[in-house]
């Protein structure tokens, strides 16, 4: 794997708080690397350091074989912030041309590239209209187009679909899959596990400023979750504790996670375990609303590692 980004021992503190704590990873060309974690996990700080916006207190970052502070290297990367970084009184085209000028792309070249990208993100009819009349989704798409103006070899996306409806998210996913290129590396931070799974070749799960797990999504699920998950929901939420105590008699406590009034049991042999669980819970008087076998997700990986959920899944 040709390495595009090499991060080693990166640490950033703000006063007493350590936002990023000794983080190391590599991202290769042609790869989409996902940073998954809840709000406050340190994803945005990490991304800001990789983009060269803030300086780390410790550790090193090598981007595209050089120093991120080097303007030649910066000219080959681009950063798409979580909230659209756009000027409301300028038109869509003017916004793109402004950002391209910061990369030294001006005149006819900038105009042609801006028109091409406007078309690509489906905003042809709005190219010459001020951004203040754009909807939230249109702004997000224009924001993404602005990040592509310099045809970056490293594209850094901070929560690109936060606040979007499911339809819009899928459109952005489609666009991102189109720009994936063997000569381009993409780092994407998200707290949506479905987004991380859908887009990323490899995922780093972050919590409290540290990477607590890293790898391909299937490998992570296999390593930290299990083959299957038995999801149990109750008519009476008070039954959750009673059920957990009953299951702990013959299952490892770390394989049982109680969350939001339900219980998830991680198992390599769900076909055998499911009838047994149903019978045992019936015996202790727990009324089951539903019990089913599901495939583990990255959320399960996070749950097993931290005992907490990343967030409620949208859409």
């Amino acid at each position: 794997m040709r390495v595009a980004v090499r991060v080693n021992g990166l640490t950033k503190r703000f006063g007493d708080k350590t936002a990023v704590d000794k983080v190391s990873f590599n991202v290769g060309f042609g790869e989409v690397y996902g940073l998954l974690g809840p709000n406050g996990a340190g994803k945005s700080t990490l991304i800001s350091m990789i983009a060269g916006v803030i300086e780390p207190d410790e550790g090193t970052i090598e981007v595209l074989g050089g120093e991120v502070r080097d303007s030649e290297i910066r000219a080959k990367i681009n950063y798409c912030p979580q909230n659209p970084a756009l000027y409301d009184d300028l038109t869509g085209l003017e916004n793109l041309i402004f950002y391209s000028s910061l990369y030294g792309i001006t005149g006819r070249r900038a105009l042609e590239k801006a028109r091409e990208l406007i078309k690509r993100v489906g905003l042809e009819g709005y190219a010459n209209k001020p951004v203040k009349i754009y909807s939230g989704g249109m702004k997000k798409r224009l924001n993404l187009a602005a990040a592509l103006m310099n045809e970056p070899r490293l594209l850094i996306l901070d929560e690109p679909t936060t606040g979007m409806d499911p339809q819009m998210r899928r459109e952005v996913w489609q666009l991102l899959s189109e720009i994936k290129d063997s000569d381009r590396a993409i780092i994407i931070s998200t707290h949506y596990m479905d987004e991380a799974e859908a887009l990323s070749d490899r995922v780093a799960i972050m919590d409290s400023g540290r990477i607590i797990a890293e790898g391909k999504t299937e490998d992570l699920k296999r390593s930290y979750a299990s083959k299957s998950v038995i999801s149990i929901e109750f008519f009476n939420p008070d039954d959750q504790q009673k059920a957990r105590e009953a299951l702990c008699r013959y299952l490892e406590p770390r394989d049982i996670v109680a969350i939001n009034g339900s219980i998830r049991v991680y198992s390599e042999d769900p076909d055998t375990l499911l009838p047994q669980i149903s019978l045992d819970l019936f015996k202790v008087g727990v009324k089951i609303a539903s019990i089913r076998v599901v495939k583990p997700t990255l959320e399960d990986v996070f749950l097993r590692l931290t005992g907490r959920r990343i967030m409620e899944v949208e859409g």
């Binding site: 800001s48 983009a51 060269g52 916006v53 303007s71 030649e72 910066r74 000219a75 990367i77 681009n78 950063y79 798409c80 912030p81 909230n83 659209p84 970084a85 756009l86 000027y87 950002y99 910061l102 990369y103 030294g104 602005a146 850094i156």
Partner: peptide, 14 residues
């Protein structure tokens, strides 16, 4: 306030 500062300084702009 517009959220543009990070994007500007992530570019080659000094």
């Amino acid at each position: 306030q517009r959220g543009c500062l990070h994007k500007i300084l992530a570019s080659p702009t000094t």
